[in-house]
Structures are given as C-alpha cells and as structure tokens.
Design a protein around this nucleic acid. Structure first.
Lengths: 214, 214
DNA sequence: GATGCTTGGATAGTGCCGTTATCCAAGAAG
DNA sequence: CTTCTTGGATAACGGCACTATCCAAGCATC
C-alpha cells in the first residue's frame, strides 16, 4: 500500500506519518521508484503500536524510538534479558545526589529491596531508571514532611510484585519471541494508564464504602 | 519573607514563582506596599507541593490548578466526597464513541465492575475520567489485536483495590481535614510514579527469577 | 504526448506550554 | 541622594508534536 492508504487505514494524517518516518519510528517503505514507496501490514501494525504508545501511554516520541529499538533488538536475539533492558528506559528527572532527602531516600529504598528480598533488583540499583524514579518519588514525599511506616512501602512493593507476576504470565502466553518483545513493551507501557485508572476507580469505590456518598 | 527568599528557600527561580502566582497556583502574598509583598511558610509549603506535582507527578500546570482548587475546597468543607471529586481530574483523550473497539471496551469494563462488585464505581461510569481512561486503554489493546482472559483484568482490579485500601488507610492517619485533602491528592499524584517504579523493579526482579540473568 | 492529479521528500511554520529574560517605576539601604 | 532591590507586566525563548507548503517526478486520461 502507499502512504495515502496507510494513512487512511490507520487514521493518522500523512504529514504525521512522514514525521514518524523521519524520526525513525517507522522503517522506510520499499522504494519502487524515486517518488513512490510501498508499505505493508507490518508498517500498519507498527504505526498502530506507535500511536498507542504516544496517545494512550503518553510517551514522548524520542522515548518511543528507544523502546522500539529495544523491541527490534530483542526480536533479533541481541538482547536476552526480558526485564531490565526492555522496560528500563523512560523519563526520570535526575535526582540531586547532594540533597539530603535524596540520600535518605536511597537508604530507605535499599532497605526496602532487602526487606522484600528483591535480590535481583538490588543488582540494578546503579543502572535502573526505575530505581532512580523510586528514589526521587520517596525523596519528594519526605521533602514535603510526610512520614509513613516502612511497612506501607513494603506493602505497596508486595502488591506490585503480584502485578509484575501477572505481567510476565501474560507475556508468556505469547509463544513467538518477536511477539514477546512487543507484548512486554505494551504490557509495560499501555497497562500503566490502565492500572492507574483501575486504582482511581478502586479509590472511588473504597471511599464510597468507607464514608458513603454525598 | 519576600519573593527572593521564597525563591532561595525553595530552589525555584523568582521568575517561575511569579509565573505560578500569575497562573493561580500560589495565592498572592500579603501586600505591604505597592512594591513589596510578604510570603509565609504556607506559601513555601504550597510551592513545594506544586513543584512535586509538576516535576515528580508530571502534571500540567492547568491540572495542578484544578487539583489545588479541589484541595482548598475540601479543606473548607465544600467538597464532602474524598473520592470522586478529588482525584477525578486529570488528562484523558476523549474516546471516539463511534469506534467499535471503544464500544466493546465499554461493555468489557462494565462487566469487570460487575464482576469485582464495585457498585459505587459503577455509579460513576458516566462522569469519571478514570472510567474513560480505562475504556481507552482497553480499546487500544484490543485494536492491536491482543486478547486476554477476562480473569487477568479482574486480577489487576483486585490488586489495585488492595492498593486503594492502603491509599485510604494512609490518608486516615492524618487527622486534620486540610491535611487529609492534601494527603489524598499527594497519595494520588505522587505515588503514581512511585508505584510505577515499584512495578518495573518487580518486573525486573521476577524476570530475573524466572529466566535468570544474561 | 500534453494536461492535470497524485506521490513522496524536504523544509518551514504553527500552537501549545513551561519557563525565563527584559523593562519599569516605586521602595529600601547605605 | 544615590544605588540596589522589589514586584508586576510583558515579551521572548526553547522544546515538542504536528501540519502546511513547495516541488519535481510519476501516473492517468484524453
């Protein structure tokens, strides 16, 4: 199919598709002559994936490019670890390591990982963006003067471990390696707003149960 | 304190503080004469809250303003429901109701709420942005051709219900109404990146356990 | 084979948003 | 009195996701 049809079938404007091509989110089509390129279903699927990540997942274009690179690398067998390398990309503001709150948060998170027995995650503390995000979030809370029992954080951690098991179970239902990679990414990116929505609905539900309405 | 000191103590540039004042994220200082305004610790605290929501929570300025309005209303006793009104604000792209995937997602989510027994949440389906987000996310998955057992979604829902209970438990540890409102907002906004980070760490951990390293 | 439409590529422009710089007149400080 | 600082108004900036404009090279129809 040509660009116009790709646009029609995906609902994405041709100018936008050209932009994605330029940005490397879509591989170039097969050039049949200097002014015509041919696209196939793989392009369509990739385009839908890109749109989902941007619109539903809210990822910036640059991040999508990185994520896709990992998907493709994984599909080619270059990346063997499904975990770290794959979903360890996105956006974290660098913490200020001189800040006392940040240092305290480091200690707290390290202790948390110990307590939860997350020995594998422990190995990644220096490189994992997730680890850094966690530190930043904990530090922000502390900076605002919030105290919580250590047990609260641990409880959240245990629940998210259950969530992670579901995530990986779902990935395992997909036999092919290429699909696994894509599913892993989607499972990480697309289910985040989904979980967020579920959590808020659950808060509304539970709030209603505890305090009633009106 | 004057603007300059507020800036120094918070680490936020004076120009930015002026911007927040303009945008209504910070209440104006006490005007002591035409060219001098006096700020207090409440301003400092509010400023830190704003920064946390923007930088850690990633909320747009307009949303922060809405959230704060709700916090203040709640503190004044004008909003009685801790749940819906408070954390039901943010950013969702409007779903296209004519889309077949969106309609199917509606049915699926409705059935989910039934299955989970979330009768309170059910009442909010027409107004809650969380409900809409959920529909959008489910529709996006389906559009990409992913199928999952209904049980998976229900399992996620049950886990997020446990999370929501922790959220509300934490809010209840704060006696004053004003603090409750602020805590509720923070519990919703700031813990989201925290949970996301925990989930990803848990994925890395669980991935390591199942498949080993390298 | 001329005419008019479509194609893909290059480039520049648009709109939004968070932030920052520039002015300015009116205090404060020495 | 002079010099610095203050807060307020306004304009400028930089990034990002798109989108509109050109253009020359096909293709389609007469």
């Amino acid at each position: 199919m040509r660009l116009a049809e790709l646009s029609r079938r995906s609902g994405v404007a041709t100018a936008t598709i050209k932009y994605y091509l330029r940005e490397g989110l879509l591989p170039p089509g097969r050039q049949v002559n200097p002014t015509t390129a041919e696209y196939d279903d793989a392009h369509l699927r990739r385009l839908r994936l890109v749109r989902a990540m941007i619109q539903v997942g809210g990822l910036p274009v640059a991040t999508v490019r990185e994520v896709l690179r990992n998907v493709d690398d994984y599909a080619l067998g270059r990346t063997l670890r499904l975990g770290a390398a794959l979903w360890a990309l996105p956006q974290v503001p660098e913490p200020d390591e001189n800040d006392a709150f940040v240092q305290a948060a480091h200690r707290e998170v390290d202790e948390l990982l110990d307590r939860l027995g997350w020995s594998n995650a422990k190995l990644l503390t220096t490189i994992s963006p997730s680890y850094r995000s966690l530190v930043v979030a904990v530090a922000a809370f502390r900076r605002l003067g919030y105290e919580w029992g250590f047990e609260l954080l641990a409880s959240y951690g245990r629940l998210m471990h259950e969530v992670a098991k579901l995530d990986l179970d779902f990935v395992e239902t997909h036999p092919s390696e290429a699909e696994k990679a894509e599913t892993a990414v989607l499972g990480s990116v697309l289910t985040e707003p989904m979980l967020q929505a579920l959590r808020r609905l659950a808060q509304e539900e539970e709030s209603g149960r505890r305090y009633g309405f009106e």
